[in-house]
Amino acid sequence: MNSEEKFFATVRTALGQAADGERPAKLFPQLFASPDPRPALARIAARGPAELAELAETLLAAATENRITTYQVSSLAEAEAVVVELVRQTDPEFSHTRHLLCHDHPDIAGLRLWQRFSRESVAVHTSFSQDQQLREKTIAACIGITAPEIAIAETATLVEISGPGRPRSTSLVPSIHVALLRSEKLVADLEEAYALLGQRQQLDSFVFVTGPSKTADIEATLVHGAHGPCELHIILLSEPTLPGDTAHSAQPAESAKQREDTPESTAPPEAG
């Protein structure tokens, strides 16, 4: 009997089972049974622009509570302006040059940051999975930009799912984390987020991020910027119409309403 078999034999004995009587998981389906995720998934799928706008409001309120700076934009061009402004204001904490590290994501590529900074001493990197210098770039970066797949409105929580081209460290090691978040990625609460995560066949490593890193270990005084980013910025992108988005074309009234809202959503970014 090897040490692992012995370990299991001890556990089985403790539970009053035969020491060598392995209990296969498939004989205990009720152990792994979960409540049906379909109602939650249906809720998410059925959300139109109005409901998403409500979720956006919830997220913005929760973000303020969690010391997150938020910006509402209605196009990638506006998002780009926000990032450019942020980069120009940033004093690099760990290197002399301003390095930007971007997840390999079409929306972030759409910001064309390398063009914007082609004549400034700002180095723009993308976290391509084949890049052997990625670690050095990550450590040098003062800003890491991600485009989360899911975000929870109730708590302003980003769900960062890692994968090739989307390393874990981009939202962690740079001093500032910027998340470019499409409003369609919003869900109401943790339950809906888990329902979506459950739909993924190969669940990679992922992390829920709620605010910048913080500590209260010294006399319970809250300080932001412990070992992770000191600042978290969420750029919430609600495009008035999306090409081929049936939800929008099916509800012209809603789309029109959102167009009216556009001036408000292009207002200057909230102060952080």
Partner: peptide, 19 residues
């Protein structure tokens, strides 16, 4: 807290070189 700042889920090596 409703949720802490970070809740991370890992179960294997990272898929990125340097991690």
């Amino acid at each position: 807290q409703k949720i802490s700042t970070y809740v991370s889920f890992v179960g294997g090596p990272a898929d990125t070189p340097g991690e």
